[in-house]
Every structure is written in C-alpha cells, then in structure tokens.
Amino acid sequence: MAVMNVGGRDIPVDQEGFLMDLTDWDRDVAQALAAEEGVTLDARHWEIIDFLRAYYAEYQLTPALRILTRKIGLALGKDKGNVEYLLSLFPVGPLKQACKFSGLPKPTGCV
C-alpha cells in the first residue's frame, strides 16, 4: 500500500494506484491520480468519468468494454462510443485507467 498526498490529505492507494477507500474520491483526487500517469483531465475525461461513476452507483458494476462503448455511444454521442476514442483519453487502457481515475475498483477480467 502507498499513500498519495492530495491537498494535505493522505489518500491510501494500492500498488497499482487504485484507491483503497472508494469514498476518498473527489475531483482533486482524480486529477492527482491522473497526474501520476501523465494525464490532465479535461471536460472530455470528466464526462466519461461521470458516466462510469453513475453507472457504478446504479448497478455496482463496471460494464465490460463492449457494453461500455455501446452505452457511451447512446448517452454521449456515437462518435464517443468506441474504443479508439476512449483510448485517446485513457491511453493505458480505457477501462482500467478510467476506473482508476474515477475512483472505482479495478475491473475484474480482461474485457
């Protein structure tokens, strides 16, 4: 376990940088998590993060990538409902990195 300092708060994270306590998440924490990986969050990232967090809050689930892209296409526009678009925002892996910045658990499985 490691600790990340955000605005004077100590936030525990696991070896891969996922939050240990999901309730620690706020937008400053998200920016700090992203900065660790060289990403600066802007409006395009936030709409995906907000979408993922809302989906998780509703269903206790991070959807599989195929399902996520379909849902994002329906909710945010067809041009955004594809893996290429998500990869352009979350270059290390659309699901894993987006979940990390969103303060959600590490996705299980590889899809």
Binding site: E58, Y59, Q60, L61, P63, I67
Partner: peptide, 14 residues
Amino acid sequence: LKNFSAIFRAMKDY
C-alpha cells in the same frame, strides 16, 4: 459484503 444484487438490473445492457 458488497451487495451485488444491483448487477441484475444491468442485465438488460448485456
């Protein structure tokens, strides 16, 4: 434990 029962309501997405 995590209450995973909400996942059933996501099945329509699948």
